[in-house]
Computed example of a mutant assay.
Amino acid sequence: MAIYGYARASTTDQDVTIQEQALLRAGCDVIRSEKASGTTRAGRSELSLLLQFLHPGDTLMVTRIDRLARSIRDLQDIVHELRVKGAVLKATEQPIDTATAAGKAFLDMLGVFAEFETNLRRERQMEGIAQAKAKGVYKGRKRSIDPAEVRRLKEQERLGATAIAERLGIGRASVYRALAAGDV
């Protein structure tokens, strides 16, 4: 019966050292860390690896539930996978232990709040963007494609969309979109 620790930070400028130290103090045999969004399981290879290694009687340990998932659906899916494998989930900073009824109930409540916090953050971000657009400050992401260069390659060098995409290091669909929009 092993205890596997999982630490996660959302962005590359955040640090997982404090989480890793807490997981070590909690007795984790193996700790895996990654820097990825918690709103989805996509792209979280370290979590996937841990879930593959769990066996009956093992424990997956996190410091807080929001380090594991920010979506109640993902959280429930992870807990279901653990249950099927005969493993449990525990948190060092929260009274979470999926081996108990109270721990399961508290887990679901915390999962709802983690998702709620993510949704609030997204709403505030969208409000800020709307205000910036109204003031004329927000222009969106800068173009990654130079329309003049696409035009030059199309007209002067008589290249097709595939050749233009390869030359500029962009997707062929981006060339087609630019051509269809009349940007080039």
Results as ranks from 00 to 15, higher is better:
184 V>P: 07
144 S>E: 11
183 D>R: 13
32 R>C: 00
158 R>W: 09
37 S>Q: 03
42 A>W: 13
106 F>E: 02
82 L>Q: 13
108 D>I: 14
136 G>A: 07
76 Q>F: 11
2 A>D: 05
112 V>Q: 12
55 H>W: 10
37 S>R: 02
154 K>D: 15
160 G>H: 15
76 Q>G: 11
70 R>Y: 11
103 G>P: 04
152 R>T: 04
92 T>V: 15
9 A>S: 08
165 A>H: 03
37 S>D: 05
119 N>F: 05
183 D>M: 12
37 S>E: 04
122 R>S: 08
3 I>V: 13
28 C>M: 00
79 V>K: 03
62 V>I: 09
107 L>Q: 04
160 G>R: 05
76 Q>H: 14
70 R>W: 06
40 T>K: 13
88 V>F: 06
145 I>A: 00
183 D>C: 06
51 L>S: 03
91 A>I: 11
74 D>G: 04
88 V>Q: 01
44 R>E: 02
46 E>R: 07
49 L>S: 10
52 Q>W: 10
14 Q>R: 07
84 V>G: 01
25 R>I: 11
94 Q>P: 01
109 M>S: 15
53 F>D: 08
156 Q>T: 10
97 D>S: 07
28 C>R: 00
12 T>W: 12
85 K>Q: 14
159 L>Q: 07
178 A>W: 02
68 L>E: 02
128 G>K: 01
124 R>D: 03
131 Q>G: 10
4 Y>R: 03
130 A>V: 08
110 L>F: 12
28 C>D: 04
178 A>G: 01
178 A>S: 15
23 L>A: 05
126 M>T: 13
179 L>C: 09
13 D>G: 05
118 T>G: 09
158 R>H: 14
176 Y>N: 13
29 D>I: 01
27 G>F: 10
93 E>P: 00
152 R>G: 01
182 G>M: 09
35 K>D: 03
19 Q>G: 10
161 A>P: 03
120 L>Y: 05
150 V>D: 02
146 D>V: 06
165 A>G: 05
81 E>M: 11
7 A>D: 03
45 S>T: 12
169 G>Q: 06
44 R>L: 04
89 L>E: 04
74 D>V: 04
125 Q>T: 15
41 R>Y: 07
29 D>M: 09
183 D>Q: 12
59 T>F: 01
62 V>H: 01
111 G>W: 02
54 L>H: 12
175 V>S: 05
88 V>M: 07
159 L>Y: 05
37 S>I: 06
59 T>S: 06
176 Y>Q: 09
183 D>N: 15
161 A>C: 10
162 T>Y: 06
